[in-house]
Simulated assay, not measured.
Amino acid sequence: MNTTYTNYASDEDVALLSPSDVGPLFPDDQLIAAGTDGSFDPSDRWTLHSSSVTFTDSGLCPGHVVRLIAPVERFRSPGALFGVAEVAAHSVKLRRLGMASGLGEPVAPPEGLTNVSFLIMTLDPQISQASREVDALLGIRTTSPSLPGLDGISLRDAVVRLVLARRYAAITRDGDTAFATRARLFEASFERLMTRLIISENLIHPDRIPRLGTRLIR
């Protein structure tokens, strides 16, 4: 029996849709790596170096998001977000979110940068769970979607919206009501997208779509 599932989205996909909320959205106990000794050489203003962190041992890989939080005069609160282009033992080449490596303004100024503080959190567990549930709702349950007309972009968008709806709802339950509206917006967006996918592909009867408030958001 095949029990391996494809993750249809990444941390970067989530960050692109809600960049200003990455701090609270990513749980504190899902830390990949952190440091205060980061630096950028003038000769390579895209590559973050850290002697205290072994990035390859931490599991860092493309799809994760690096948040630079200091020096604050360079990276204003809540920090600057970057995607991962390449990973080495004590360095990680960054890129602008959603952009190819090397495009846009480099991370560091021409003279380089030292005393850089960074955080790398992940939503991998939530993304995996959401991917499995989208699989189940669409009747895929394989490592490679084979249903006609079903594309990876739609699956990615569905998973991102489900993850965000759940995370905003969880933060709201913890006492922060500011995110309640966002939870409802992403919940409704996920339902609309799934309804469209199910009806357009004739995968299952629309009546089988569960209400998020009663089943999927928990």
Results as ranks from 00 to 15, higher is better:
residue 156 R to N: 00
residue 156 R to Q: 01
residue 156 R to F: 02
residue 156 R to C: 06
residue 157 D to R: 07
residue 157 D to Y: 00
residue 157 D to C: 01
residue 157 D to M: 07
residue 158 A to V: 00
residue 158 A to R: 04
residue 158 A to H: 01
residue 158 A to S: 11
residue 159 V to W: 00
residue 159 V to M: 04
residue 159 V to S: 06
residue 159 V to P: 09
residue 160 V to T: 02
residue 160 V to I: 01
residue 160 V to A: 02
residue 160 V to Y: 05
residue 160 V to P: 09
residue 160 V to S: 06
residue 161 R to T: 05
residue 161 R to C: 05
residue 161 R to M: 02
residue 162 L to N: 01
residue 162 L to K: 04
residue 162 L to F: 07
residue 162 L to Y: 09
residue 162 L to Q: 03
residue 163 V to M: 09
residue 163 V to K: 08
residue 163 V to L: 02
residue 163 V to R: 02
residue 163 V to W: 08
residue 164 L to Y: 05
residue 164 L to F: 06
residue 164 L to V: 05
residue 164 L to E: 04
residue 164 L to D: 03
residue 164 L to W: 00
residue 164 L to Q: 00
residue 164 L to T: 09
residue 164 L to I: 10
residue 165 A to S: 03
residue 165 A to N: 02
residue 165 A to T: 07
residue 165 A to L: 12
residue 166 R to G: 09
residue 166 R to E: 13
residue 167 R to M: 10
residue 167 R to L: 06
residue 167 R to D: 10
residue 167 R to Q: 12
residue 167 R to P: 12
residue 168 Y to L: 06
residue 168 Y to F: 15
residue 168 Y to C: 05
residue 169 A to Q: 08
residue 169 A to C: 10
residue 169 A to E: 09
residue 169 A to F: 12
residue 169 A to T: 08
residue 170 A to K: 13
residue 170 A to W: 00
residue 170 A to N: 12
residue 171 I to V: 14
residue 171 I to R: 13
residue 171 I to M: 07
residue 171 I to E: 10
residue 172 T to Q: 11
residue 172 T to G: 08
residue 172 T to S: 08
residue 172 T to E: 11
residue 173 R to L: 11
residue 173 R to D: 12
residue 174 D to P: 04
residue 174 D to T: 10
residue 174 D to S: 12
residue 174 D to N: 15
residue 175 G to L: 04
residue 175 G to W: 11
residue 175 G to D: 05
residue 175 G to P: 14
residue 177 T to I: 15
residue 177 T to C: 08
residue 177 T to D: 13
residue 177 T to V: 13
residue 178 A to G: 05
residue 178 A to Y: 03
residue 178 A to S: 13
residue 178 A to C: 10
residue 179 F to C: 11
residue 179 F to G: 14
residue 179 F to W: 14
residue 179 F to K: 15
residue 179 F to E: 11
residue 179 F to L: 13
residue 180 A to D: 08
residue 180 A to F: 04
residue 180 A to P: 03
residue 180 A to H: 12
residue 180 A to T: 08
residue 181 T to Q: 15
residue 181 T to I: 03
residue 181 T to M: 10
residue 181 T to N: 14
residue 181 T to W: 00
residue 182 R to C: 07
residue 182 R to T: 04
residue 182 R to S: 15
residue 183 A to N: 11
residue 183 A to F: 01
residue 183 A to V: 03
residue 183 A to I: 06
residue 183 A to H: 11
residue 183 A to K: 03
residue 184 R to G: 07
residue 184 R to S: 13
residue 184 R to C: 10
residue 185 L to P: 00
residue 185 L to A: 14
residue 185 L to G: 06
residue 185 L to W: 10
residue 186 F to A: 04
residue 186 F to W: 08
residue 186 F to I: 05
residue 187 E to Q: 08
residue 187 E to I: 03
residue 187 E to D: 10
residue 187 E to M: 10
residue 187 E to K: 15
residue 187 E to R: 15
residue 188 A to V: 06
residue 188 A to N: 08
residue 189 S to M: 02
residue 189 S to D: 00
residue 189 S to N: 07
residue 189 S to V: 01
residue 190 F to G: 05
residue 190 F to H: 04
residue 190 F to T: 06
residue 190 F to W: 09
residue 191 E to L: 08
residue 191 E to H: 07
residue 191 E to W: 03
residue 191 E to F: 01
residue 191 E to D: 04
residue 192 R to I: 07
residue 192 R to T: 07
residue 192 R to M: 01
residue 192 R to V: 05
